[in-house]
Amino acid sequence: MTITRRLFVVAHPESRHHVEGRVGGWYDSELTERGLRQADAIAAELRRRIPASTSAEVFSSDLRRTWSTAEAIAKSLGAVASALPGLREKSYGVAEGREQSWLDERFVFPPVPEAPFDHGLRLDHVEGIDGAETRREAGARVYAAMDSVLARPATEQVVVTHGFAHSFVVGRWLELPLEAMGRATFAATSGCITELNEDDVFGNRTLRSLAAVYHLGDL
């Protein structure tokens, strides 16, 4: 059985909003010095896993913390990174850039569905923060961006995104309907790599490894 396509999903490494305890979302923070070293480690790991004889495509959220990561990866792979704003993190509206405690004090948690598959309540839940996206709005945006990535006839692709958006990238790969993403989560950590495969026999799309961070070592 041959793998006809591999998609590597990268969650950006340590950013300034992480260490400063600030809300991320569309807040355009940069990678820390540690995050830059982690980006190089991610790039080296992807170079190890993607054959040098294969042309790889790199797509990224346009925010600085993801774009810096994507540039390091693209340089290592001899590729050119392409920015897709649709791969941005969920927007937290007026909370972005504020101290995390400010958001925590105002955040309204989504309900737990009482009936099976009643996920619309969570997808459309309003968190009490002006200007914040709902889960549905963020998910639809990421799904649309992934449609453009998956429409390309590439065999090796890299998508650089954010922790919340990571779930929707994986969900779109697995062809989960957006309605199923009210509760579905594929947890990510900073600097992780998720590998997704498609085979040439059944055309199955597989979640081969989720949120691996071994390549970061002690960084």
Rank of each mutant, 00 (worst) to 15 (best):
R6N: 09
R6G: 03
E14P: 02
H17I: 12
V19I: 12
E20Y: 00
G21D: 05
G21H: 03
V23D: 13
G24L: 08
Y27N: 04
L31G: 01
T32K: 02
L36G: 06
R37C: 04
L46R: 08
L46W: 02
R47L: 07
S53R: 15
V58F: 03
V58C: 07
S60M: 12
S60V: 07
D62E: 13
A70P: 05
E71M: 13
A74D: 10
L77C: 02
V80T: 13
E89V: 05
S91C: 03
Y92D: 00
A95R: 08
E96L: 02
G97T: 00
G97F: 07
W102D: 11
W102K: 04
F107L: 14
V108Y: 14
F109Q: 14
P110Y: 12
P110R: 09
P110G: 09
P110K: 14
V112G: 12
P113Q: 12
E114Q: 10
D118Q: 09
L123F: 07
L123E: 03
G128I: 07
I129P: 08
D130Q: 08
A132S: 04
A132G: 01
E137C: 10
A138S: 15
A144R: 15
A144Y: 10
A145D: 05
A145E: 02
T155Y: 06
T155V: 08
E156D: 05
Q157C: 00
T161E: 04
T161C: 09
G163V: 03
H166P: 01
S167L: 06
F168L: 14
W173M: 00
E175R: 14
L178Y: 05
R183P: 04
F186L: 02
A188I: 12
T189E: 08
S190K: 15
F202V: 01
F202A: 10
G203V: 04
L207P: 01
R208D: 05
A211I: 02
A212I: 11
Y214F: 12
H215K: 08
L216E: 10
G217C: 04
D218W: 01
D218F: 07
D218L: 13
